[in-house]
Design a protein around this nucleic acid. Structure first.
Lengths: 233, 233
DNA sequence: TGTGACATAAAAGTCGTACTTTTAATTCCT
DNA sequence: AGGAATTAAAAGTACGACTTTTATGTCACA
């Protein structure tokens, strides 16, 4: 779940990134590198490297004679997978989950439509396989096994779309699905209707029916949003 | 356009980032920090900080006893505004422009639908104003003035959607619009149909007609894609 | 001849310190 | 009171020493 990644750098980065995204340091707070070095018991070198990374994520801004200033949320690089993970781990997971799900609802239908046009035979096969896997694990509290198939399914669709930007949302979708499963923003067993829809999407892609693939995926998205409304109002 | 940002760090970062995204160092290439320090005539400290940032963008990976390895394109953080800018400045601008436009075509219609539900009176006003601005500058080689209104228009829609992820795509859209204008992936004067559609979107948002706003924006997107097909095949 | 333990060295990682540069804030002069 | 000169705080940069990891080459043994 959490990136293990050894090394002092990663440790401090994770600690600071998490703290900032969690709102522990409100925007405008200034941190001084020396102070941070002391706090984490590392050299200033390490802190500086961390700050530079945080700066590239626009979580902070470093200015001479002032220090490292925490930036307001609107300037954060919210598409950075690292930032997404930190935020999902923190206090505003609900809001985060919602805005990411809305993003999915916009992107995935279009991606599915393109996938119907571009998917390779192998991708079609994998997709069907995953859909069947979802069916097989959709009953009897097998949420974890189900999740694996679900994530794989959506990854394949995004990948098969042939669009680089869509493909790179695979990780984001994985985070969302994992997050909502592990935090019970989901029914005990997956919605049977959703499972069926996945099977049908695989079918539509196999049959190169772009419009149907798009429409069906849109239904999945609508369902996910509704579920979110019910369980995390 | 290009971030000036003084300092040795920014300079080296821009140089390396640009070179890597331009494919000057093919994936698998290993760079050694000492060598880079020499090449750019800066201290290892600076190079290390740059490498750390590049690593957070997943353009490179640094491993002990090996060096700094350039990563394959699929692992890059292609949503990082910095990376987007570098790539748009480089050789594969066409491909880049296309995949970003497809992304827009997925996101903006949904954003417009939401904007119709959530836009403040002020945003409605600004939107209308921008649409009228587009009309006013749509004839007689005023592409630059037109661009300003166009960018502002789309920014407002994304912002007004109330969704953070959408809002943060404002910069990306700005880059795309600017890019295609400045590189003549566009007709000499804007497509009159597109201009009209913008006016109608503003109207739909003002009247809280989500479905219409979405449909109209989808038409704009389709138009943009078609234009791209014609001018950059 | 192959295989596994061992030694070697190359490169990144870390640290501490000294120095430079920018710039917010204070002081001081008119 | 206002503006110019001074000060000092913090980041930026550089350098050198040392540590740690680890790919690779070596050698002994089966």
């Amino acid at each position: 779940m959490t990136t293990p990644a050894p090394g002092l750098h990663s440790h401090v980065l994770a600690a600071l990134g998490l703290a900032i995204t969690a709102g522990e340091y409100p925007p405008g707070t200034v941190l001084r590198t020396d102070e941070l070095a002391q706090r984490f018991d590392v050299s200033r070198t390490v802190v500086r490297e961390v700050v530079r990374v945080l700066e590239s994520m626009r979580l902070v801004e470093s200015r001479r004679r002032v220090g490292v200033t925490v930036q307001p949320t609107p300037s954060w690089n919210v598409y950075d997978p690292q930032v997404i993970r930190w935020r999902l781990a923190g206090a505003d997971r609900p809001r985060q989950l919602r805005s990411l799900t809305v993003l999915r609802s916009a992107v995935e239908p279009v991606a599915a439509g393109l996938a119907a046009l571009h998917a390779t035979p192998e991708q079609c096969r994998d997709l069907t396989e995953r859909a069947l896997g979802m069916v097989a694990t959709s009953r009897g509290r097998q949420l974890d096994a189900y999740l694996v198939h679900d994530v794989a399914f959506h990854r394949i669709v995004l990948e098969a779309s042939g669009n680089e930007m869509f493909a790179r949302l695979g990780d984001v979708v994985a985070e969302v699905l994992t997050g909502r499963t592990h935090h019970h923003v989901m029914f005990e067993d997956p919605d049977p209707a959703a499972v069926t829809l996945h099977v049908q999407v695989a079918e539509a892609v196999r049959e190169r029916d772009a419009d149907r693939a798009e429409a069906l995926t849109r239904e999945i998205a609508v369902g996910a949003l509704r579920e979110l409304d019910v369980l995390a109002p």
